[in-house]
Amino acid sequence: MSLVVDLFMVLLILTSAVWTVLARDRRDAVIAFIVLGLQLSLVWMRLMAVDVALTEAAVGGGATGLVLLRACARLQPVEAEGRLPGLRAQIAAGLLCAGVGVALAAVILAPAAPAPSLAPAVAAHMDEVGLKNPVTVVLLAYRALDTLLEKVVLVLGLIGVWALAPDLFWGGRPASLRAASPSGTLTFLARVLPPVGVLIGVYLVWNGADHPGGTFQGGTVLAAMWLLVMMAGLGELPETRALRLRRLVAVGPALFIAVGLAGFWMADGFLSYPPEYAKPIIVAVEVALALSIAVILGLMVAGPAAKEPER
């Protein structure tokens, strides 16, 4: 019975994936991609990987989908002018994508036997960190360097987005997210939902120590609430040069690096924690990271500055 369900899921996912690639209209492709993300999160649930499922739904489906939809809107005037990449560039892009796909398929379809696993080692040493969610233990204790670099990449990504702004606008506000004529329904949602949404975001971050959840999932929910308020026109986007905003962007990675350096004299080396303080340190880093992720994701959706900074 469960095989039927699994096969059906595989069929659905393949359909969405093919639809994503073949859709003629760019916006249709993005919508198919969002659907694909939600279906993938269902598969992760069936594999009992709740943390991955939450991340896939929040980031893969939600946040990435929103960024891509904004990109579509920005590309519309370009498309109208008929400035599309040439045939040669299209073929090159297709070949590169196919190459990456084939390489990934080769790695997944021909795994080393037995598949290498560090899961027993992690399970054996869980108590030393003092958290109950093995995923958080791996992300913030055993593979903390990977997690740190992941967050630094996010900051670099935001700098990349900001760098698209013309010199004249550098430091100014991004283009307003507010709809031309904000609907009463949207305004209503933007007034009612954020208190609940912020609570859920904080809950996901706080819960991440012992149960599925964590910085990325919680941060994405917080970012969504911020964006909702902007879209309804209840708040305006801040100027990208605002010092407070930039501090929020940097606080997570900065605290993570500071904790890592402190490991040199408080524990065994970079990013290692003294065992008796491991849990409070990890929770503090997670809170700061969630704040930074929320602000970075919100700003990525907002895009580069599109107005001159006010004097």
Partner: peptide, 16 residues
């Protein structure tokens, strides 16, 4: 309750 709120709002927006 949250799905209710989200669904109702999304339907209103699409309908508008």
């Amino acid at each position: 309750a949250l799905v209710q709120l989200g669904g109702a709002t999304a339907s209103q927006l699409i309908a508008e």
